[in-house]
């Protein structure tokens, strides 16, 4: 017990430090309710997506197709709404179609990865190109706007108690994802497969099935993110969601999810998403252009992963030192 897990407390402290620093730097703008709602609104899509991709991260896998799949799902929902707009069923069918697209994409990833043993980053790297191409084909490389039905635009903009709807979606998704990971047998299996796939196999876990389901979940939350993003911006294009791959990975990594697998929690990941939103927003208020936040995000990923990797290396080195000590 005397071993306080500083990693556990360092995150809230970073958050507090950041808020303090930004408040001092920018006075009241930063702490206003409007701005906080704004920050949360801007991170809600990332927050929703990370709720699904965290399953993939926990396996030690990765999904590089998040951005273009998000775009393709946004395009899908908008195009289907346009196609069915006479029937009044457009919204319903559109959302279903987009989620189905996301789920199928995940199924495809999971199948190729488990059946052929191809590294996850390569499969998703290749499919990112496929989704981008499909979006461009469907939209004919144009931005498709979508301002009706009202129910669709409401998804991204209606406010309840001063907070826009997507924030509630994010909270709902986070609760769901937290429940699945923390409370169900499947969640236990995900941690176990990510921690030691061989031991899991021997413990009777169908590792391939768990892997495929994780990629499907990642696809589904990416689709939901795409739908909400389309609704927020009332348009969709192949470029919708570009940059989100890095954002989602960064959010996870800031939130203590190890990209090497087996470690991480949903609250952590959501925290990471919010922190990143604050960072974006703060940098924005400090007049740092959005094009340059990539620098910070990239550094964060490297530092966090290098830290994980060093710890792993350190543990094995400690073991060696122990042996050497024994030997001495």
């Amino acid at each position: 017990m005397n071993n306080i897990n500083w990693g556990k407390y360092s995150k809230p402290m970073i958050l507090v430090a950041l808020v303090v620093a930004l408040t001092v730097l920018r006075g009241t703008t930063f702490l206003s309710v409007g701005n906080i709602a704004n920050v949360l609104w801007s991170v809600s899509v990332i927050g929703i997506m990370v709720c699904g991709t965290i399953f993939v991260f926990l396996l030690g896998g990765i999904d590089l197709s998040i951005a273009t799949l998000c775009g393709f799902c946004a395009v899908t929902v908008v195009e289907v709404i346009h196609y069915f707009h006479d029937t009044g069923l457009g919204l319903f069918v559109g959302i279903l179609a987009a989620i189905a697209v996301g789920a199928l994409a995940g199924l495809f990833h999971g199948f190729i990865i488990t059946r052929f043993g191809v590294p996850a980053f390569l499969v998703t790297f290749a499919s990112q190109s496929i989704f981008q191409g499909l979006s461009m084909v469907v939209t004919n490389n144009k931005i498709v706007s979508c301002t009706a039905p009202a129910a669709f635009t409401a998804i991204g903009s209606v406010k309840i108690l001063g907070f826009p709807l997507p924030i509630y979606f994010m909270i709902l998704m986070a609760l769901l994802s937290w429940f699945v990971l923390r409370k169900t047998v499947f969640g236990r299996y995900v941690y176990s497969v990510g921690g030691n796939a061989t031991a899991s196999e021997i413990s009777g876990i169908n590792v391939k099935r768990v892997t495929i389901i994780c990629y499907v979940l990642s696809g589904v939350t990416t689709a939901i993110g795409g739908i909400i993003l389309a609704s927020m911006t009332q348009q969709a294009a192949a470029a919708t969601g570009s940059g989100y791959t890095n954002d989602v990975i960064t959010a996870g990594v800031i939130g203590g999810v190890s990209l090497l697998g087996g470690e991480g929690t949903v609250p952590g990941a959501i925290f990471g998403a919010v922190l990143m939103g604050l960072l974006n927003n703060g940098l924005n208020l400090l007049s740092v252009p959005s094009t340059q936040t990539g620098l910070v995000k990239g550094l964060v990923i490297i530092v966090a992963v290098a830290f994980d990797a060093m710890q792993h290396a350190d543990q094995s080195r400690k073991k060696v030192r122990k042996v050497v000590k024994k030997a001495a």
Binding site: R188, Y191, S192, G195, N196, T198, A199, S200, I202, G262
Partner: peptide, 13 residues
């Protein structure tokens, strides 16, 4: 270590 247990998880799990 390689096949018997999941190092990151607790005794209970």
């Amino acid at each position: 270590r390689g096949q018997g247990f999941i190092p990151l998880l607790s005794t209970t799990k």
